[in-house]
Amino acid sequence: MVAPSILGLSFVIVYPLVMNITMSFQNVKLTQPDMRGWVGLANYSHLFADPVFRTAIANTLIWTLLGVVLQLAVALPIAFLLNAEFAGRGFYRGALLIPWVMPSVVAAFTWVWMYDGSFGILNYILTKLHLIRDPVVWLGNPNTSLYAVLVEQVWKGFPFPMVMLLAALQAVPKDMYEAAEVDGANKMQRIMRITIPQILPALALCTVFITIWTFNSFENIWLMTEGGPLNSSETMTTFVYHNAFQSFDLGMGSSSAMVMFAMLLVVIICYARYVSKQEER
């Protein structure tokens, strides 16, 4: 009965991992299928000599760090607002999940349209507000492309921490606040001493999730800029895909994927430890 899902599991983790490790030490070019063979560390030395790969690592770090901070910065205040009691909040919660619900391809294209250099609504709004003087080609400018895509990422990703934090806020026992009020704690003290410590575990958990998801994001970057222009929005994921399916060099693709995986492993191990501790309780 359980066999199919164990099979599925090894298909999703074990097999790809083993394949990536082996291919990263091999010459695997889809254009020259007969040339396949072991090449030792050649792929890795190519990789680290490649300035584009260094750009990709730097971009990935900026992307992940900024992305996580911004997602939380949007999610947390909204979660607090939704936790207040007022008529109609169910509707607002649903309406704020729309970005999460929209298919990622649709979301990416809608943002491409809003960012459009000639007829995009964003340029129009920003010039009206006098924030910019002339229209900016947001996705076509090496200085702005990464951040323009990041805005889409934050917009699409914030509902997850929002819902998680809202659930945590609602789970804080009401009598704790009442007891604190009786003891003379003011509003600020109640937030700092009760709310924050109570939602901290949920905050930690969803930070782990969005860190990894943001680190792994590929589709939106690929659909909006393909890592360009001039590699300005190239992250590790787009670098892997470029190598594997535009240069058809699966060896290079795999070695860069392995570097990416090594960086992720640290977070994944911490998370797995945390989960197994929770299970023991």
Partner: peptide
Amino acid sequence: LFPLILLVS
């Protein structure tokens, strides 16, 4: 949490 991009090749 596994990166999708690792599975493509």
